[in-house]
Design a protein around this nucleic acid. Structure first.
Ligand SMILES: [Zn+2]
Ligand SMILES: [Zn+2]
Ligand SMILES: [Zn+2]
Ligand SMILES: [Zn+2]
Lengths: 130, 130
DNA sequence: TTAATTTTTGTTATAATATAACATAATGTA
DNA sequence: TACATTATGTTATATTATAACAAAAATTAA
C-alpha cells in the first residue's frame, strides 16, 4: 500500500489546484490563484510544491519550470518520470510505458553509478499540431 | 559530414570557457568569467548559449540550469541527450549508450506523437559518493 | 560593389523563478 | 508535559532569463 500522507492546509489547496488542471502550472500562476485563499507569498507556494514533489503527488517538468499532478498511484513512479511535450501547443502528457520504464530502471552506465531516479522528457509535435 | 558552423566572437569565447570545464557552468558564472573579455550583460551570454545549444556544441542540464560542452561529434546527438547526475557532488556525465539511444529514438507513445528530441537525466550517487 | 537581408552585438530595463533568514504556530511523540 | 518535528507567515533578496531598441558586422544576391 502507498503511504498515506496527511497534507497540510496549504499543501491541500495547492495540490487541489494542480489536480484540477490537466496541464502543468507555474509557481507564480499558482500563487496568483491561491491568493484568494490566503496564500500570499512565493515561499508558501514553493514549500508546498517541494513537499508535493517529494511525496510524488506532483512532478516538476524541468524544461518548463512547471508542475503537473501525477495520475499514477504507484508511489515508485514519483522518482521515475517520463513526459511528452508538444513544442507547439505545450501540451504535456505523462507517459507510463512498462517496457520503457523497465529499460530505464535497469540501465547501468559504465561508471558504476547507482541511480535512484530519472526524468525523461520527449519533445515533438502532438497530433493536433503536426 | 557535420555542418561546420562558424562561431561569432562572443560564441567562441563562451564555448571556449565551457569546453575548458568538464562540469556544467551556470549562465551568471559564465558572465562573471567573461567580463574580462568585454562581455558585460546577461543577454550577451544567453544569446551565445542559445546558439551553442541550437547547434549542439553544448547542452543544457535542465534540472540544474547549467550548460555543459558536448564531447560527441555526431550532430544528431544534440537533440537526444542522456546525463547522469550525482545528487551529492553534482558531478554530471553525458552518457552515450547505443542500445539506450536506439530504444529512446524508436519509442512511440500511444498518442501518435512525433518526437524529434528528448532529454533524459538520471540521478543517483556516483562511485565517490556512495 | 552596391543594396538588401540576416545575424550578431551592445545596452538598459525588467520579468520570471527561487531561496535565505527569522519568528511563530501547529502537530506528532515519548 | 516536554521535546522534537513540521508547517506557517513575512520580508527581503538571490538567481535565472527575456523584452525592447539601436547599431554594427557579416552574408547574400542583384
Ligand atoms: Zn506520475
Ligand atoms: Zn501540440
Ligand atoms: Zn552531447
Ligand atoms: Zn558524487
Amino acid at each position: 500500500m502507498q503511504k498515506q500522507e496527511t497534507l497540510s492546509r496549504n499543501q491541500k489547496i495547492i495540490l487541489d489546484l494542480i489536480e484540477k488542471s490537466d496541464q502543468p502550472l507555474k509557481a507564480y500562476s499558482i500563487l496568483f490563484d491561491v491568493k484568494k485563499k490566503g496564500i500570499n507569498a512565493p515561499l508558501q507556494v514553493y514549500r508546498a510544491l517541494d513537499k508535493l514533489v517529494e511525496i510524488g503527488k506532483i512532478h516538476k517538468i524541468e524544461s518548463r519550470n512547471a508542475f503537473i499532478a501525477c495520475k499514477n498511484s504507484k508511489c515508485q513512479i514519483a522518482k521515475a518520470t517520463v513526459f511528452s511535450i508538444c513544442e507547439s501547443c505545450e501540451d504535456v502528457t505523462e507517459i507510463h510505458d512498462h517496457k520503457l520504464s523497465e529499460h530505464l530502471r535497469n540501465f547501468k552506465d559504465n561508471k558504476g553509478m547507482k541511480y535512484n531516479k530519472y526524468n525523461l522528457e520527449f519533445f515533438g509535435l502532438c497530433k493536433k499540431c503536426i
